[in-house]
Design a protein around this nucleic acid. Structure first.
Lengths: 341, 341
DNA sequence: TTGAAAGCGCTACCAA
DNA sequence: TTGGTAGCGCTTTCAA
């Protein structure tokens, strides 16, 4: 119905008195066509209101200039930001984005990958949180070029653009220790399932160990990534006989949820409790107190991932490429020295 | 490169000892194929690792099961939420989403629409803020089914799912007046360009007028939609000889920016100043103070828009359809009675 | 219930 | 520099 009476390359060719091959050339490699001819064709396109059919073109040329982007949930601003980075770069290179949320479900991710295969995406960017496990082999089988973000993999044959989750977390915990904190909680993601959550957890543990602080399993809670999760976790940890004086949260959303809980319990942040987040989403700087957090290069990561992927697709560079970008501890108002009781 | 050696319908047909027509049938209308045959084909697909080529299928069947989604910026959580609503419904109906940000530029929007035409999207959902002006006629010319969200149009021949921007704003201002406020500021979007911003502006003006409160142009600032815009605008309005005691902001982001500014100037919200937002993004309930704001049905709007669009595409219902959803004033901690000086 | 075959609109190779 | 034409992989009559 919506395709009714569309003009094709043939109509244009007839109108311009050339062959379809020539029309196709002015579309794809205009320099191969003589000026006068090209202009005639261009005019014919205008006159006939020609709109290129990317379906036909793609079928024939075996490409779609479509990139698949898979994220956990667009609802977390940090994923919105990577997506924006990807999109901005992609558009400038003529690529469109098919976006898919997994809601942290591996099954959804599989379905999406299958969908992208059917739609013949030229490549895909995976922002999922998974371990090496099954997704990477799956992607390899698809033969689609792809890049992983947010984390590196054991498998060094894979494109990825990431930052150091271990080191970043280590840095945070060290900062807390420097402030005098010894009881340091962690509200984490599912580190038993998610690679980056695990790396952060290890950064936490290692830092404690290096500073001779005993690891207390009661102090670490494995949660999801919502405000509510942050609130709940904080409530739990605050009930402990010996509660923490500082808490590191796996992302800013959790951290804000955690702070809300602390405030509701009559505590003051950072006077009674220091809280650190992760990501540095835009709101964090505007929160009250402004959130101390680890800034991740979300937008750049998106851009770079798109760049690598597109270059890979077009054979402009050889894979695999691995980038480790820098994070930055943003010290703001939600952390303070441990009060001497 | 990524298309190398893909098995096609022909391979499957050969393997299953049927014609390609039959394979195509088991793909599209399995009921037309005898059980035994169908199972044989299905098995052949498995064995050959067949993956449907949506490009070829789409070219032939003149459809792509792709929906275009155009939003101002994925970076504002409220647009992330509509997008999620669209996506969740679309996926369940077998549609994928091509997402495009316009960054509030009409030129970008045109480019995106053109892209979607080339990619032969089956339909598009427009979340742009524009007036009736040029986008709608443009969309009509594309002959693509489409639906507009967030606002209704003069043109009643267009699908849209919206809420009442005028009434919602009127309600907010009325609430502020009921609290005793008389100097009520408005930090708005570009109401000279954006339809919904204009409707809100008119809701504001009308409510004031109905309550015999003089309209003071100094009290209304036309800004963008970022935190920084909110801060700036608030700074400006607070410098006035007779500053407002309450401010309505065009969205929650602006409102939070505005509150930050007020706090920096040593004011307390809501004691010294009431602030109301619009949208009720998730963070608003977790902000300090929790933001009083107008909740818009972003997720439902997305779902419904997708539903209408898909039904329209598949001829399951007749267009145009116009839905006006309900908004809800969420009274929280950022507003209070005007202090008697 | 199944098969044959003519497209869908474009690309790209081979000639001219 | 341009044209002819065989696909790309699927859908969809029309017949059998």
């Amino acid at each position: 119905m919506n395709f009714h009476h569309r003009t094709t390359i043939h109509d244009v060719a007839r109108k311009a008195n050339v062959s379809v091959a020539t029309v196709s050339r002015v579309l794809n490699s205009p320099s191969l066509v003589r000026d006068i001819t090209r202009n005639r064709v261009l005019k014919a396109m205008k006159d006939t209101h020609y709109v290129y059919n990317a379906l036909a073109g793609g079928l024939s040329a075996r490409k779609t200039t479509i990139l698949g982007v898979i994220i956990p949930t667009i609802t977390n601003p940090v994923f919105a930001t990577v997506t924006k980075g990807i999109q901005d770069y992609a558009r400038q290179r003529g690529y469109a984005i098919i976006l898919g949320n997994t809601d942290y479900s591996e099954e959804n991710e599989r379905d999406l990958i299958h969908l992208l295969q059917e739609k013949r995406a030229d490549g895909v960017i995976l922002n999922g949180p998974w371990r090496d496990t099954p997704i990477v082999p799956l992607m390899k089988k698809t033969r689609l070029p792809f890049v992983i973000t947010w984390q590196t993999l054991q498998d060094k044959a894979v494109n990825c653009v990431a930052f150091d989750n271990f080191k970043s977390t280590y840095r945070i915990v060290e900062y807390l220790i420097d402030l005098g904190h010894r009881r340091i909680g962690m509200i984490a993601g599912k580190f038993s399932v998610f690679e980056r959550a695990r790396m952060r957890w290890e950064g936490y543990r290692n830092c404690l160990a290096d500073h001779h602080i005993a690891f207390d399993p009661q102090l670490v809670l494995e949660k999801g990534y919502t405000f509510a999760d942050g609130k709940e976790a904080m409530a739990r940890v605050l009930q402990l006989p010996s509660p923490p004086t500082a808490v590191f949260c796996g992302n800013d959303i959790l951290a804000i949820g955690a702070i809300v809980c602390a405030k509701e319990k009559g505590m003051q942040v950072p006077r009674d409790l220091s809280v650190v987040g992760f990501d540095d989403v835009e709101i964090s700087a505007y929160y009250d107190p402004p959130l101390t957090t680890m800034a991740v290069p979300a937008y750049e990561m998106g851009q770079l991932a798109a760049k690598i992927l597109i270059e890979n697709i077009r054979g402009e560079s050889k894979s695999p490429q691995q980038y480790i970008l820098e994070t930055k501890l943003m010290i703001r108002g939600s952390t303070d020295k441990k009060r001497t009781p």
